[in-house]
Design a binder for these strands. Structure first.
Lengths: 161, 161
DNA sequence: GCTTGACCTTTCCACGATGGTAGGGCCCAA
DNA sequence: TTGGGCCCTACCATCGTGGAAAGGTCAAGC
């Protein structure tokens, strides 16, 4: 697990005091970062976010630093990184001795994954587009799309009755 | 539910007799279609495949027709159709009075979904590729990738300590 | 016939990331 | 004090697939 899982040792406070001191509750953190309260709790439970401090009445409170981390996670999700990859990126982010080569490697790995998935989906699209172009799209039942699905050979039997 | 959910009324048999009569057990059906036994049972449970007939000893048996249907599903999955879409396609396939227009509409809907997802992933890839190109990838910690994730503004503070 | 190993059966759990809901407690303003 | 809105936990659902456990069946070799 990343170092983010370790507990902090902020003093426990009343919610009003915490707000005075510049802390946010989970709803405010969600609003400020675009990460739902639900997901903030989830990220804590899987160790992506540090265990949040609580007020006396058990409300989670978040510092500016936490907000910053949540924005980082949000941005990384938007770029399609997985939780595992984000965990690694967060580790590097918080690592003073990191080398940019490590970060670049992670990013390029993800680029390669994206390329892979893009290529797969383009192949699907091209096949379907080709079939659809050859389909009359009228009232008659004859359809090259169904013929393809029904056994790409073409010389095969016609089902449907 | 599609008409595929209705039971058939094939006579119950011993397994050996069923094989003689040209039926397959689930393992053979899986082998012949590339759909795992697990997924064949799953497709039955969600009504995508008809409820399979059984031997006396409760083994599922499959006809050539079933094999054909499984291949249809497999091919449609390969083209990225969802279960819901496949249910509709199977319905049309088995419908004598279908119009090819209905099939074409489904296919083009799916093409549009694919285009959408492709565009999203291309945007991710382009952004990341750009960031990675600007990253030295050496031993130093400075990294435009982390800077982007850490608050795309650029003029923002640097975390990491 | 009996043993053995491969197969079949069902049921439950897991993934990844997110949303929802239910039942309870807390906070703040009127 | 009361009410509405927020927070807490704990659970279930999604979607498609894989895995494992615990038990029954089949087929081949002895």
């Amino acid at each position: 697990m990343a170092s983010t899982t370790k507990r902090r040792s902020r003093p426990t406070l009343e919610l009003a005091d915490a707000r005075h001191a510049g802390y946010f509750n989970i709803g405010q953190a969600a609003e400020a970062t675009g990460v739902s309260a639900k997901m903030i709790r989830h990220y804590e439970s899987i160790g992506l976010m540090p265990v949040a401090d609580r007020t006396f009445s058990n409300y989670r409170i978040y510092s500016d630093n936490d907000i910053h981390t949540l924005r980082f996670i949000k941005r990384a999700r938007t770029l399609g990184f997985s939780m595992k990859q984000i965990e690694a990126l967060l580790g590097l982010w918080q690592e003073r001795r990191r080398s940019s080569a490590q970060v670049k490697k992670l990013a390029l790995q993800h680029v390669a994954e994206l390329e892979q998935r893009i290529a797969e989906m383009q192949a699907m699209r091209d096949t379907l587009q080709g079939l659809a172009t050859r389909c009359h799209g009228d009232d008659r039942p004859d359809c090259p799309i169904l013929e393809d699905l029904s056994g790409a050979g073409g010389s095969c039997c016609a089902k449907g009755h």
